[in-house]
Design a protein around this nucleic acid. Sequence first.
DNA 1: GTCTATACGCAGATAGAC
DNA 2: GTCTATCTGCGTATAGAC
Lengths: 197, 197
Amino acid sequence: MSAPPLTGRRAEIVAAAARIFARDGYAAVGMRDVAEAVGIRGASLYHHFASKEEILYAVCLSVTQEPNEQTLPLLDAPGTPTQRMAALVRAHLEHLHGRQVEHLVALHELAALSAEHRAVVDDYRRYYQRRVRDVVAAGMATGEFAVPDARLAAFAICDMLNGFSNWFHADRELTLEDVVVGYVDLIVGRLLGSGVR
Amino acid sequence: MSAPPLTGRRAEIVAAAARIFARDGYAAVGMRDVAEAVGIRGASLYHHFASKEEILYAVCLSVTQEPNEQTLPLLDAPGTPTQRMAALVRAHLEHLHGRQVEHLVALHELAALSAEHRAVVDDYRRYYQRRVRDVVAAGMATGEFAVPDARLAAFAICDMLNGFSNWFHADRELTLEDVVVGYVDLIVGRLLGSGVR
DNA sequence: GTCTATACGCAGATAGAC
DNA sequence: GTCTATCTGCGTATAGAC
């Protein structure tokens, strides 16, 4: 069902491409640029990928398929909605931090995917959002969360989390841990919280 | 200092281009496509704009320069930080709603701008974010806002607001007014609020 | 698996008439 | 201000040797 994990040369190409796509924009990057970054010639890339778009697709999958398979299970673990949401926020931010350039590409270049690939990526994103909404609703049912509308809260939470990739720079004032602790508090403690701190 | 307002044919071209760029992605759209949408031939566009990138720049300015000039003054109006922030949230969402396709383009296609134009747009965005952070800090000083870090709260707020363009569809369950009321509550009442409702 | 060489289509931009 | 006609360069992708 899901794509095999990337290994060896393919993984190398995808990593290099993500970095360059994120910096210069997908359209401005040539196959020769990607090839140069891994020390081969442009034509050799076609031994590993059928097209430039296939490389972009692999980049996008690494930040949509992976979180669905690795982060979402936290929502099925034992614990209250409050605890599960806090675990999700932490894991989500830590994952984005490890794949920041890939995520930047996925945020900005979805339009360059083929219709088929775009649909796959969109499905992953929609499902993730749906699961977030479901935990919010679960917390509303237990009385832990005091928000009036789970849909709106889920949009707010996902936008906050994903926005991270756009502004975080490891070399500035804030550390990853600062953001994780701060966002767990903002999201679980304040945005959703019932006021009982 | 600021660009003259768009009028007549130029405005028509920018509006049509924004719609098509938002739907198909800047790179996938040809000058001939933009021209067709306003009922002229591709070459005729060059009477109005020097290049395709200049059209994109005009689109981006309409959702960065405009909010800075029209929405930010609300932060200088009389009233408490709570009141001023609530006014900003409403005005921001209403502005985005009126320029949704332009904003989608600005969110996704910044990489296609020239370095000079990109710098101008980035400056507008940074300044807006800075002003939001300053109101948050002002509310912290008066004790109205109970967040521990103004920077983090400002990122959260801006990402929530701007994310709106990505998911709002006028023909779905939520109306613009639903979102405005809901987000004023989430941001001013809950995220920032001191608990006194 | 990587190379050299090249095909070739597309899209941005120009020239110049009306 | 808009047109027709055209140039031109660039970048994906292929062919085929090593």
